[in-house]
Structures are given as structure tokens and as C-alpha cells.
Design a protein around this nucleic acid. Structure first.
Length: 719
DNA sequence: GTTCTAGAAC
DNA sequence: GTTCTAGAAC
């Protein structure tokens, strides 16, 4: 008996098939019995070995027709494989190999074929051949039951329309793509030990469930009337690190999927979990079956979501990521795995779309072609989703409030599916997939899309919350007709695109934090913020600063959409700037009438923290408990603060306003009267409370505003 | 934007 | 020991 000729033939190193054939031919020539230990799953592969027999020798096949589950389990556990196949890598390779399996037949040239389907069969076969003498022979024919040639993951293959009507795996054109080594992605925390599709799980707990429900196997081929239907693969949201109850989560998934399917057709969804023993997959399968969810459009898959193609041969253009609120890599689990698989390109692409995401929402990120996720797996879009958090160790914990939790989780899935639908509808997707013109979005998809655009939050409370949260998808109905550059019309993206298209290239900020939209919301809907707003006009609103840095501190905020900061201002805005300035003066006068000691400055921060252009009107006492940091002081008392009259002059002269560097915010603390330096904020504040020095001369050209002329000779009246 | 906090500064 | 701040967390 010759152990694995191919693997050991070359001085202990992996040999070639040619070397194996040559060695076998030589041995036969010498009158020896030869045993080839090789996978030989395909007819072509083994035909050359069969030819070796010819008239010289009988050719037997001993087929280890073990369940895929066992093959993978053994290959995963195997160490020191001569062909460097072990661990998760082996599992993926076995999966792909088994897809091509064609059991041998006598007419291929074999005189005897022994099928082994369990360990006992194998032992019997080994004994039979072990005790053969050189001149002994065995009767021809087929020994042992030939199985139904079941392919690995037949169910999931049917789901992906890779099975012909006879149940044989069709030759997937994509399968010709070269298998890529998994070395590059083997280091991330997401342990891809054993990625396997559901269809191979006979024998284990999930497999039994599957046999009962048989979700994957039932779809009949006739159900698939279209090719390349857009398919979204998504992980279970919130049930891992966010510790959301799995039973409740599975209810939400099934409900969300069911609702989605009732609104849109011709798209498919796959719930993915790494472990074949996944409780979530079991729960969802059982519940989906009970609820009669269309199993030709919804399936589950056990495997690595970042290796759907190379690990399972499945082609999903869109995958979802269970993101964190900062949309950053790390943290482990699916998020770490997807960012790791997506590489730096995905990270950059994500940053281009948004900085943060709110619970219950999702954000589409087109995966750059340079990303391994795109190149290797064919993933065109990643949709980041943030679900509710029940883990006290993580932000925004809902503390077992499952009423809210389920609502937010449902919103998260709805947002995900809606965004996925918008991708399916996008011109980009259609272009990419219209080569064979098999898929065209149907009227019902379009209809659904319109419905999504017009969707309204269920309560005003929710709406308000959604409006201030970045990335929510129901708050942008209008102004969505701009050129999207071919990107899908995700609502989250609409908002971002809107910001981009309306902001100039000179904009100092490329993105806004999640907190930075409140002012914008107030400016757009001041009637909803009566408590904050003290004056509403067509061009601007006036409101008290929520954290005033002086006795009097108000914001005159422009209502012009898309005008977010100083860098956005152009000549055409000059009349509005003048009106805002006049309003600021009017309010300063009003305040002065109550407190004649007040002196004001009106101006803009070079780089604001809040979106929507706003003019600060601030009294120069800086007597406020909210002024606690160096940054606070320097934002009003260095050139970072751009006086309104200077800005207007610059716009008039140059058409652009000068933006001062943010580094000024960390410069030393100096008194705004006498310019003395102070080591920290408390010392500075105690100084300015008593400093009697006049204001510096550079502020005496209209920058300082006061209305009580008597008793002060150093300030210049604005009147 | 604010709040929190570790560690620097005193 | 307390005060203060920068930077992380939210």
C-alpha cells in the first residue's frame, strides 16, 4: 500500500500529478499492485489513472463517500497535511471540491467499485485489500450502496440557482475563478474555523432542524424565474456583543423579512452566521417556516460572511455589517471580520459616507474595486447596520427595555432591507448586472421604492429623534434629485450627497459628528423647537446658545439649506449675512438695555462644531460656568473667531472668507483685554473678572459693539 | 457639542 | 493630597 503518492513522491514534498502517474506506471510495469490515494472527485481527474490499467491490470475504485460534514470535520482537525491544507482553509476547499463531485461508474473503466459511507465500510474495504495476495483477484461489480450523489450544500446551491433540474450542480461560470489562498485573511479575530453551508449539516442539531423544516431544499427550480436576483447576505444584528435576546431577535428578523417581501419581490435575503450550530439560524429557520416566509427568497447560511464566494461558492453583491456606532473597525465579531476583509479601501470608503450611525439605521458603502472584498468575493456594497444594545458595557444600553429594543431592531432591519432595495434599483446595479439583461427591476420594486421614500415615522417623538440622527433613512424626501454619481439612492446617502453637493470644495469640514445636526434641524424646522428659538424669520432664526460661554450668548442661524459654515459663504450670501448681522445687533442692543455693562462681539467660528451657518453674538464678560476649556476660550479670543464685519468685507472684496487654522484653539491662554498669559482656565477667569485694561486696538474698528456710551471710552459703538 | 477620567501638574 | 486638562467616550 502506498500512502498518498502525490503528496510524498518528491522527497517528502508535494509531488505533481504527472510524477504520480509516472510512478504508478513504473510500478505496474514491474508487476506491482498500485494504490492511488487521491480525491479524484471529477471524472476527468481520475480518467488518466483509469487509463493506466488497460489490459495490464484491473482498475478498482474505493469511494469514500462520506457525508460532507465528516469530510470537513476531518480536514479541519487534520494537521500537517502535506498539501498545506488544514483548519478553516481545508473546510473551504473541501466545500468547493465536493461541489464538483461526480461518483464513479463502471463504464468509466473500473471493473469494481466499492462505496464506503461510514467507518465500518471503510474498515471492510481496507481489510479486503490488505489481505489480497499478488495474484489474488476480486469479483467485478459495485459493492456497497451508491448514495444519491448528494452534493454539498445542495439546498443553498438551489437557492443560488446553481443546481439544474436533475439536482446536479450546474457549472457555475464564476466557479472558474481561481481559488484564492486564505492566508491573507487568516489573522483576524473572527475565527473562520469551519465555514459550512447549512446543507451539509446532517447529523448535528441544526441538521435535524433542517430536516424538519427543510427550508433550503424545498425551493423548486421553477420558482426561479430570474437570474442574478440581487441577494443580500446579512448577519444577525445585536445578538452577539450587544446581547440582544435571541428568541426575540429571531421574531424580529422573521417579521422584518416577511414585511419586506410583502412590499418588494425579486430580491433575496440570506441570514448568515459563522457557526453551523448557530442558535439564531435554527430559531429563524423554524420561525420562518411557521410563518410561511418564501423560502425561495429567504435562506440561512452557516459560514464566513466575508468568504461567501471563496468559502461557499455563493455570490452576494451586497453584504450587511453589524457595525458599531463609530463605523470603525475592531471590536471583534462580524464588524472586525468585514473591515479586515475589506481592507483599508473599505475603511476609507466608509469614512467618505459617514462618521457615525444611529441605532436602528444603516448606511450604504460602495466597496471600492481595490478592496479584497470586491476583488475576491465580488461584494459591491457593504451596508453598515447598527442595532439596539442591551450590553451595559457598550454605549446606549437599553437596560432590558425590549419594547424599545425590538422596535429599534426592527427599524435596523427595515433600514437595511430598504437600503438594499435601493441598491437593487439603482442604475449602477442594473448597469453592472445588465450584461445578460436577465435582471430588471420590476414595477413592484419601483413602487416599493417610492413607498419607502414617502415613509413616515410612526410618531412625532420618533421623528424628532430620527431627524437629528445621522443616517436615518426616512427624513429626506425632497431635494433628492441631484446627481448621485451613479450611487444607489440610499436615504442615508442622499443626506450625505446633499451635504457634499451643496458644500463647496473649500469647506473646512468633510463630515459632521452625530451631535452636529441639531442646529440644522432647528433652522429647518424652528416651529418644532419653540423653547430654543427666540426669533424666526425667512432667512434666519435666533436662539439662545444651549451652553452659553458668557452672560449673553445667542446664535443667529441661517436657514439656507446647504450653507453649513464660513467656508460655504459666497457673494450671493452677502445680503443674508447683513441681515443676520443686523439681527445680532438688534438683540445685543436689547440685552444692553437690561445690562448696560455688556459689550458684544459678533462673529463666526472658522471651523464650527455644529452644522448650519451661525453667527455668534456673545458678551465679552465670558462669565459662564460653561466656559471650562482652553478650546472654549480660544474659539472666541483668537483669530479663529472671525468678526462678522470683517467677514462681510472679505466676501465683498474676495468672494471668500478667510478660514483660520484649528491649531489656534490650543494656543496659550491670554486675557482679551491686556493680553497677559495665564496657565489655566480658572486662573484666566479670575484674572478677566478683575482686569481693568481697555480692549486692544485691533478690535476697535467696529468689531466690539456696545450701546451704553457713557462711562466707557475704549469701546466703539456700532451705531 | 458635553461628560468622564487618567494622569500631569502643582 | 487637590486641581486641571487632554483626549476618549458618548
Amino acid at each position: 500500500m502506498c500512502p498518498s503518492i502525490k503528496d510524498t513522491i518528491a522527497n517528502g514534498k508535494a509531488g505533481t500529478k504527472a510524477q504520480c502517474l509516472q510512478s504508478a506506471a513504473n510500478s505496474l510495469q514491474e508487476g506491482k499492485n498500485v494504490l492511488i490515494d487521491r480525491c479524484n472527485l471529477e471524472l476527468e481527474q481520475r480518467s488518466e489513472f483509469v487509463k493506466l490499467g488497460g489490459a495490464r491490470a484491473d482498475v478498482h475504485a474505493v469511494v469514500l463517500d462520506l457525508p460532507a460534514r465528516v469530510c470537513i470535520s476531518r480536514s479541519v482537525q487534520r494537521t500537517g497535511h502535506e498539501g498545506n491544507l488544514q483548519g478553516g482553509k481545508a473546510a473551504a476547499v473541501v466545500n468547493r471540491m465536493l461541489q464538483k463531485k461526480v461518483l464513479p461508474c463502471l463504464n468509466e473503466g473500473f471493473s469494481r467499485i466499492t462505496f464506503c459511507q461510514n467507518d465500518d465500510d471503510v474498515k471492510t474495504a481496507v481489510n479486503t485489500y490488505s489481505f489480497l495476495g499478488l495474484f489474488d483477484s476480486l469479483p467485478p461489480g459495485i459493492i456497497g450502496p451508491k448514495s444519491a450523489d448528494a452534493k454539498v450544500q445542495q439546498g443553498i446551491m438551489k437557492f443560488f440557482k446553481k443546481v439544474d433540474t436533475d439536482g446536479n450542480c450546474s457549472q457555475n461560470p464564476d466557479a472558474k475563478r481561481e481559488y484564492v489562498s486564505q492566508n491573507s485573511a487568516a489573522k483576524h479575530e473572527y475565527n473562520e474555523n469551519n465555514p459550512r453551508p447549512m446543507g451539509i449539516e446532517e447529523g448535528n442539531e441544526v441538521g435535524k432542524d433542517e430536516q424538519k423544516n427543510d427550508m433550503l431544499r424545498k425551493p423548486s427550480v421553477s420558482d426561479f424565474q430570474w437570474n442574478d436576483a440581487p441577494t443580500l447576505a446579512f448577519p444577525s444584528i445585536s445578538t452577539s456583543d450587544f446581547q440582544f435576546n435571541m428568541d426575540k431577535a429571531s421574531d424580529v428578523i422573521v417579521e422584518a423579512v416577511s414585511d419586506f417581501f410583502s412590499k418588494v419581490d425579486k430580491v433575496k435575503l440570506v441570514l448568515v452566521d459563522l457557526s453551523p450550530k448557530s442558535k439564531m439560524l435554527s430559531l429563524v429557520k423554524v420561525k420562518a417556516s411557521k410563518k410561511n416566509v418564501d423560502t425561495t427568497r429567504f435562506s440561512t447560511y452557516a459560514g464566513d460572511i466575508t468568504r461567501l464566494y471563496t468559502g461557499g461558492g455563493l455570490h452576494c453583491n451586497v453584504i450587511a455589517n453589524a457595525s458599531n456606532w463609530r463605523l470603525k473597525p475592531g471590536g471583534g465579531g462580524v464588524n472586525a471580520a468585514i473591515f479586515s476583509a475589506g481592507g483599508e479601501a473599505l475603511e476609507i470608503a466608509t469614512k467618505e459616507q459617514a462618521d457615525t450611525i444611529s441605532p436602528g439605521s444603516s448606511i450604504i458603502v460602495p466597496v471600492p474595486r481595490t478592496s479584497p472584498l470586491n476583488q475576491r468575493e465580488g461584494v459591491a456594497y457593504v451596508i453598515h447596520v447598527l442595532g439596539p444594545n442591551m450590553n451595559p458595557q457598550r454605549p446606549n444600553c437599553l437596560k432590558d427595555d425590549y419594547v424599545k429594543g425590538c422596535k429599534v431592531l426592527y427599524e435596523a432591519y427595515s433600514s437595511l432591507f430598504n437600503n438594499f432595495a435601493s441598491i437593487a434599483l439603482s442604475q449602477n446595479y442594473q448597469k453592472e448586472h445588465s450584461g445578460d439583461s436577465k435582471y430588471e427591476p420590476t414595477k413592484s420594486v419601483s413602487k416599493f421604492f417610492e413607498a419607502v421614500v414617502e415613509c413616515q415615522p410612526s410618531s412625532s417623538e420618533q421623528k424628532n429623534k430620527r431627524e437629528v440622527s445621522y443616517g436615518s433613512d426616512c427624513n429626506k424626501k425632497s431635494r433628492s434629485n441631484g446627481d448621485s454619481g451613479g450611487l444607489p439612492r440610499s436615504f442615508a446617502m442622499l443626506e450625505k450627497e446633499e451635504q457634499k453637493s451643496e458644500r463647496s470644495d473649500h469647506s473646512a469640514k468633510s463630515s459632521w459628528g452625530s451631535w452636529a445636526h441639531a442646529l440644522h434641524q432647528i433652522a429647518m424646522h424652528p416651529e418644532k423647537h419653540n423653547r430654543d428659538v427666540i426669533e424666526i424669520l425667512d432667512d434666519f432664526v435666533v436662539l439662545n446658545d444651549l451652553y452659553p460661554k458668557a452672560k449673553k450668548h445667542i446664535l443667529v442661524t441661517s436657514r439656507l439649506p446647504g450653507l453649513d459654515c464660513l467656508a460655504d459663504i459666497r457673494r450671493e450670501h452677502l445680503p443674508m449675512l447683513q441681515k443676520m448681522h443686523a439681527a445680532g445687533l438688534k438683540w445685543a442692543e436689547q440685552f444692553s438695555s437690561h445690562d448696560p455693562s455688556l459689550v458684544f462681539r459678533l462673529g463666526y467660528h472658522s471651523v464650527p462644531s455644529m452644522r448650519q451657518l451661525h453667527l455668534h453674538v456673545i458678551s465679552q464678560d465670558f462669565d459662564s460656568t460653561h466656559l471650562r476649556k482652553k478650546k472654549h476660550w480660544n474659539s472666541f479670543n483668537t483669530p479663529f473667531f472671525r468678526d462678522s464685519i470683517d467677514v462681510q468685507e472679505e466676501i465683498k472684496r474676495n468672494g471668500l472668507a478667510t478660514i483660520k487654522d484649528e491649531k489656534l484653539l490650543s494656543s496659550e491662554l491670554r486675557c482679551h483685554h491686556c493680553k497677559s498669559a495665564h496657565p489655566n482656565i480658572p486662573r484666566l477667569k479670575s484674572h478677566i473678572a478683575t482686569c481693568k485694561a481697555p480692549f486692544p486696538s485691533h478690535l476697535q474698528n467696529g468689531q466690539l459693539v456696545f450701546f451704553a456710551l457713557s462711562g466707557s471710552s475704549d469701546a466703539v459703538s456700532a451705531i
